[in-house]
Amino acid sequence: MSARRETRDKIVARALGLAALLSFGTTFAIVLLLLGESAAIFAKVSLKELLLSVRFGPMLDPPAYGVWPLLAGTALVATLGLAIALPIALIIAVYLSEYCPPRIRRVLKAALDVLAGVPAVVYGFVALVYVSPFLQPHVAEIGVYSALAGAIVLAAMLVPYIASLADDAIYAVPLELREAGFALGASRLSVVRRAVLPHAVSGVVAACFLGVARAMGETMIVLIVCGLEPTLTLDPRAPVQTLAAFIAQASLSDTGGTETGSRLMFFVATMLFALTFALNAISARWRERFLRRMP
C-alpha cells in the first residue's frame, strides 16, 4: 500500500516537474529564436547603423535602420504614462489599505482587478474618440495622433494595475508599526507618511517597474492613437512609433515578407524582450528587498 503511494507520489512529482520545465523551456526557446533570427540582420545592416543612425525607415530609399526613434518613442510613452499613473495609483493604494473600511476595500479591490482586465483595444478606441478631441483645444500644436493621448490612456490602464500591486505592499506592512505611531500621538496621515510608506517603498518601486515593463510592451493603444511616425523626439505632442507597435504594424503590413524586414522585426523584438526582462528583474530585486524587511 505504502509502496504504491510512494510510486504515485513520484509520478506526480515528475509530471509537475515536467510542466515546470515546459515553461522554462518555452522562455529559453524564445530567447534562442530571438537571438538567432536577429543576429542574422548583421549580414545586411551593421550594428553601427542600427545603434548610431537617428533615422528609421526600413522600406524607404535609402533604407534607414536606426532604432533610436523607436526607443525614444517607447520611453516617452511609457514614462509619461507612468508619471500620470503613479500619483493616482499611490493615492488609491494608500486609501485602500489605510483609510478604507474592509467591506468597501473588498469591493474596490475587485473593481480594480476588473479594470485591469479591460482589453487594451477598448482603451485605444476611447483614446481616439474621446481623449484626442479633448486634448486638441487645450494643447497647442497637437494632432489627432500623439504620444500624450496614448500616454494618458496608458495611464488609465496602469492605474488599477499599479494601485493593486502597491496596495498589496502597503497592506503587508505590520500593524504594530502603525500602532506604535498612534501610541506616540501621531496623526493617521503622518503614520502613513513617516512609518508605513517608507517601509513599503521597495514594494511600491517593484510595482512601478512592473508597470513600466507592461507599458513598454503595450501595443494596441499606441497602434491606434500614437501615429506610428518614427521620428526621434521627446515632445509629448508629437506622433511617435514604439518598438512593440512597429512589430505589430510590420507584421500586419507584411514586412515579414522581405528578408531584412523580418530580421529587423526579430531584432526589435529582442530589444523589447531585453528591456522588459531587465525591468522585470529590477522589479524582482526590489520585491525581494521589500520581503526581507518584512518580519
Binding site: 525607415g57 524607404l60 530609399d61 535609402p62 494632432g143 495622433y145 506610428l228 511616425e229 521620428t231
Partner: peptide
C-alpha cells in the same frame, strides 16, 4: 523620381 525615396517622418498608414 524614385519609388521609395520619401522622407520617413510622416504619419503613414495602409
Amino acid at each position: 523620381g524614385r519609388p521609395r525615396a520619401l522622407r520617413g517622418d510622416y504619419i503613414g498608414s495602409e
